[in-house]
């Protein structure tokens, strides 16, 4: 059963901008799915169409088998959405915002209050329930939008950059929360500019650029496509210059920090043997850049025309 099926979805805005050029997406029930793309790629338009906030030009969209055109009520009941921009009444209280949203989904006030308590507590907002939303910090407002999206306990949760502008501690606690929600059976679609976030959380990834899907596969598959990775090694003893490591390119960044590039077919074991041979002891290592980020940039950049002709 697919949580979401999108077929040949197109959107042309009245000003002629072709935001979506016939995209196809299938998201399996229970998946944690990343929808990535540069700014203006069409991610938010796609989410707008799925959630009925944007009129499509053509194509079909089904949510758990319910067509959003012929069965909008059933389709919408399955979806919870956390939009990119704040879209709540900032003068209303935290509790009212969540309870009213439940009411719009037909949940009686008694049940809505219980659920509001559950999700506001989990998202550490219960103590602020009587405060106006405008009094909350940026991170709290984001968490409030997540609580609001969950109050009707949707089967499909769509998060459009939910952690934008949120500090790392809260971001990581939100990741844990989303993981738990996903493990409990909720399908999650995530768009984010933090590719580390997508790599950590998602099992499938689609990359959209200029209104087209340019990659759509399992996260593990896409990461396998990475041809070259750069590792940063922290050394036990300082070096004066970069050692000549047979088969590897190495740069000495600082006296105790060495950057080594590995091709897809190289193994870390071979690298460590070579380092051992040079008497170099490594105390720790990390990827120089996030792997998905490297791939993402390569995929998107390869499609872009240079801004200035190289021949000029």
């Amino acid at each position: 059963m697919y949580a979401l099926t999108i077929n040949n979805l197109k959107k042309v805005y009245p000003n002629g901008v072709e935001a979506l050029k016939g995209i196809n997406i299938d998201v399996e029930s229970g998946d944690f799915y990343a929808l990535l793309g540069p700014n203006g790629a069409g991610k938010t338009t796609a989410i707008g169409i799925i959630t009925s906030l944007v009129n499509k030009t053509s194509g079909t969209t089904e949510v758990f088998g319910h067509n959003i055109d012929s069965e909008p009520e059933a389709a919408k009941a399955c979806i919870g959405v956390v939009p990119q921009e704040l879209n709540m009444n900032l003068f209303d209280t935290v509790l009212n915002i969540v309870v009213n949203q439940a009411g719009y989904y037909g949940i009686d006030r008694g049940t809505a209050l219980k659920r509001a308590q559950k999700y506001l507590t989990e998202l550490r907002l219960w103590d602020r329930r009587m405060d106006a939303a405008r009094a909350l910090s940026g991170g709290m407002k984001r968490r409030l939008m997540i609580a609001r999206a969950l109050v009707h306990e949707p089967n499909l949760l769509i998060l459009d950059e939910p952690t934008a502008g949120v500090d790392i501690e809260i971001r990581r606690s939100m990741w844990e929360f989303l993981r738990r929600i996903n493990e409990a059976g909720t399908t999650i679609i995530l768009t984010t500019h933090y590719l580390e976030e997508a790599e950590n959380l998602c099992r499938h990834v689609a990359i959209i650029d200029e209104g087209k899907i340019i990659e759509n596969t399992r996260m593990s598959e896409i990461l396998r496509k990475l041809q070259r990775e750069v590792f940063v090694l922290n050394l036990e003893s300082p070096l004066e210059k970069a050692p000549h490591l047979s088969g590897f390119d190495a740069i000495l960044v600082e006296e105790r920090e060495l950057e080594v590039a590995l091709d897809k077919n190289d193994s870390l074991n071979t690298l460590f043997n070579v380092l051992d041979h040079h008497g170099i002891t490594v105390t720790s290592l990390r990827n120089k850049a996030n792997r998905l980020e490297e791939l993402f940039i390569r995929l998107v950049e390869s499609r872009q025309q240079p801004l200035v002709s190289s021949g000029d």
Binding site: T51, L53, Y104
Partner: peptide, 9 residues
């Protein structure tokens, strides 16, 4: 948008 994303008619 809170209303438009909901199944309320």
């Amino acid at each position: 948008e809170e209303m438009f994303v909901s199944p309320m008619s």
